[in-house]
């Protein structure tokens, strides 16, 4: 977690006592370093230790004596055979596979509509950003209300049918997952839009003019100039959403609590339930470590892209 950075530090040249500056620099970074150590290095070591035991806060054994319950890699073996874990992982991936492309396409489409000036642009832009600023737990509650069987979504749908629609969105396994995905798309399309629009605006105007003068149609320009030039920004936007959906918890947990059954149980919800309801903390530590290792590999790729994106 504390990899040596590839970033070239900007070297201080001006003042003569360079060592004094360097020392001040160290002092300035110290609090952040300590906080990172506090949350990263030490906890991870602790997590490794606990994951190799059968410790639970209910046992009455302090955690540093957890080695009395040493079970080696048994937790990891259990994990391999844990259908509920794999189901949650698969479900998380499924939500990701649906939501990220939908959010991307909607966000890109909106960005196209917003890239040149029109009346009311500023107000509409600000309004579109509102969903992403709603507290996710509150958003969860909003959608919980909207999707009640006597709620406004069904009321709207009834408008198109002769009989009043009484779909029990949140208690049907399939529909509950759809409702959760709708909530995520509602809340996070604006983020995609925000980033993609910023990227689209940064595509140089003269490049587009040049393409127009060479006779390129709008579509050709979009696919040969605009999109290729937005490549690193698109990757960043997608990466952010993939990471966030991997963590998805608040909205979903309030809407469905992971239910009905395990129908909307994602990784975070699953870990939460094992932590709070079943209290098998050593097993949770094992799951968490497995996830951290996988994410570290993914993140190295993402970070490299981000750093490349920083250089214009």
């Amino acid at each position: 977690m504390t990899n040596v950075s590839a970033m070239a530090p900007a070297v201080e040249k001006i003042d003569a006592p360079a060592t004094q500056s360097a020392r001040l620099g160290l002092w300035l970074t110290l609090p952040a370093q300590l906080l990172v150590l506090f949350i990263a290095l030490f906890p991870i070591l602790m997590q490794v230790y606990i994951s190799l035991t059968d410790w639970s806060p209910l046992d009455g054994i302090p955690w540093w004596k957890a080695h009395e319950l040493w079970i080696g890699l048994l937790n990891y073996a259990d994990l391999m055979a844990d259908n509920r874990f794999w189901g949650a992982l698969w479900r998380t991936m499924f939500v990701m596979a649906i939501c990220v492309p939908v959010q991307f396409l909607l966000g890109l489409g909106l960005a196209v509509l917003f890239v040149d000036d029109f009346r009311g642009k500023r107000v509409l832009y600000s309004t579109l950003l509102v969903p992403m600023m709603v507290v996710p737990a509150v958003a969860g509650y909003m959608f919980f209300m909207l999707f009640q069987s006597g709620g406004p979504v069904n009321d709207l749908l009834s408008f198109f049918t002769s009989d009043p629609v009484r779909i029990a969105w949140l208690s049907d396994p399939d529909l509950a997952l759809i409702a959760v995905m709708i909530a995520d798309i509602w809340q996070w399309t604006p983020l995609m839009f925000l980033i993609l629009l910023a990227g689209m605006i940064s595509v140089p105007q003269d490049q587009q003019m040049a393409a127009i003068l060479l006779g390129a149609s709008w579509w050709r320009r979009f696919f040969t100039i605009v999109l290729p030039r937005m490549k690193s920004i698109i990757i960043i936007a997608l990466a952010i959403r993939v990471i966030e959906i991997f963590k998805i918890f608040d909205t979903l947990f309030i809407m469905t609590g992971g239910g009905p059954g395990v129908a909307t149980e994602t990784i975070s919800v699953y870990i939460y339930k094992v932590t709070q309801q079943e209290l098998i903390w050593s097993y949770v530590a094992a799951i968490a470590l497995a996830i951290l290792i996988v994410l570290s590999v993914v993140s190295v790729f993402a970070i490299k892209r981000m750093q490349r994106g920083q250089k214009p």
Partner: peptide, 16 residues
């Protein structure tokens, strides 16, 4: 402008 048959060289060339 696309139909005017005009070639244009930009100040910074606008090379793709």
């Amino acid at each position: 402008m696309a139909k005017r048959g005009v070639g244009f060289v930009f100040q910074n060339y606008a090379i793709f």
